[in-house]
Design a protein around this nucleic acid. Sequence first.
DNA 1: CACCTAAATAAGGATATTTTATTTAATGCC
DNA 2: GGCATTAAATAAAATATCCTTATTTAGGTG
Lengths: 302, 302
Amino acid sequence: MNLKQLEVFLWVAELKGFTKAAKRLYMSQPAVSFQIQSLEEFLGVKLFWRNEKNVILTEAGKLLFEQAKQIVAHFYKIKSVVNDLKELKTGSLTIGASTIPGEYILPKLIGDFRRQFPGIQINVRIAGSAQVEKWLLNREIDLGFCGTLISGKEIECLPFLTDHLVLIAPVDHPWEAGGEIKISDLVKEKFVLRESGSGTRKTFETSLARSNISKEQLSIVMEMGSTRAVITAVEAGLGVSVVSFLAARDPLLLGLIKEIRVHNLDLNRKLYVIRDQSWMSNFAAETFHSFIFTQENNLLFS
Amino acid sequence: MNLKQLEVFLWVAELKGFTKAAKRLYMSQPAVSFQIQSLEEFLGVKLFWRNEKNVILTEAGKLLFEQAKQIVAHFYKIKSVVNDLKELKTGSLTIGASTIPGEYILPKLIGDFRRQFPGIQINVRIAGSAQVEKWLLNREIDLGFCGTLISGKEIECLPFLTDHLVLIAPVDHPWEAGGEIKISDLVKEKFVLRESGSGTRKTFETSLARSNISKEQLSIVMEMGSTRAVITAVEAGLGVSVVSFLAARDPLLLGLIKEIRVHNLDLNRKLYVIRDQSWMSNFAAETFHSFIFTQENNLLFS
DNA sequence: CACCTAAATAAGGATATTTTATTTAATGCC
DNA sequence: GGCATTAAATAAAATATCCTTATTTAGGTG
């Protein structure tokens, strides 16, 4: 039994004639006879009562007619559902991100994307960069966003945005807001920082290393797993910190903390999109990936 | 797109490998590759992400997997539903019958049939013989039962039972219960009969004609469309009648009417099953037809 | 680097399906 | 009753499809 047999059957039943069905299907009448015969043979029942002048369904034919209509419709529905997927009318996309991209960059990006492709369901998971990488390897996410460069031939890792880290201090700190200090001044300070391994922390340590200051020289009074928590600690006067400007912007504008420039210290770091080589497997993921690098989103770069 | 492609696809997805699926399906691995490729080409999407060591479904593949399972199941369900029909586990049968067969013979016959084939839904319509024939020609019924011989090459008409008509009279009628009268005695009587055209009426008139008594010689005081109504009229003393023994039996046993034999008058008549040449179109009808002529049902003959 | 596994590819061959041509069977019309 | 007409079945050849064997490619492994 196959689809063609059912289609031919439906048209013969519909048009009440082998010849008519043949014309409608652009095939010859014997071909129609052949298809009906093989279907009848397969099912072991007569489907039509053939008289001269009219072709009518038997009981089994009537039963098959209903079923066949459903099946044929289902077949064509598959085609259209897959098309919807291709045209991003439907689909789903699971994104994993570390905190800075996840909390400060993705929300706008996803908002823009969803306006353009409202049928796509988007899920976001937020965790550390290492976890994002694991998710990707386990295929739990389609795309990952993180603050550290990932190597490994399984994973494609592209920078998509430069993030600026800033030195922040409590408002009552001796440093002057908007002023500039020397790198060596940092070693005298108490620091509240994100945990080791986080993108922010790594970037800061790497920058210091370029100025020949080792991470052991810093006095770290507290490590926290969330940038927002770090900022709150700085607000409370527990120490100074280096965090993404994106996270610090609002507290700075509200005067809850202050920013101090550091002479000759490059605190920029790149943020990366990662995906594994199976990216062809999800249309929405592929499209979102291109989306990041196009149009006004480029404004995010600096 | 056809069924084979979907089946191959399902097994590749299930067994996570082209070679494994090929073995399971008793076909070669290239044939499996070919089927998957043509399905992918038709849908315009990659269905599997092929790596060495593992074959995994893409988003479109996952979507198709669910749909394909349903479709394939539906295909096999058709086969089994048609089989049920062939094996009379399901199906329906519409019978048309004139009053005597419909009210006095079919009920038992249908009861026995239903005990053997409980899945068959049976509908019975009761009307005059002429109407039964019309129903049959219109294919409104699968089988007909009537008291008159039907001719016409469209219709097959077989006798299946001999029905005995009996002369009945009110209990207070001068004739002796169980006694015998001469045919000529009939013309002096008032008759309550079934309408012209009914099987019973025709049989009676034919029998009289054989004894050279024309129907005009009878004095008919009432014509009724129902045998039960005729009997009730006789009970009420409105006249005598000739009715099927099957209908008269109970009132006779209860002493509500009495039976009188008529010397040398053959009041037997045959009852017929009719079906049209499309009888192959309904398994239940075919089986019911054979059922009538088999086993203990033969006891009905005399 | 050879070896192994699994899928893709190529080419020839086996099946299936379709077409053309013809037959059958019933209908309608002189 | 004979003859044209219509519609489906059948036969045989042509074609398309699908499958198999053999081979290639690619990645992983000892």
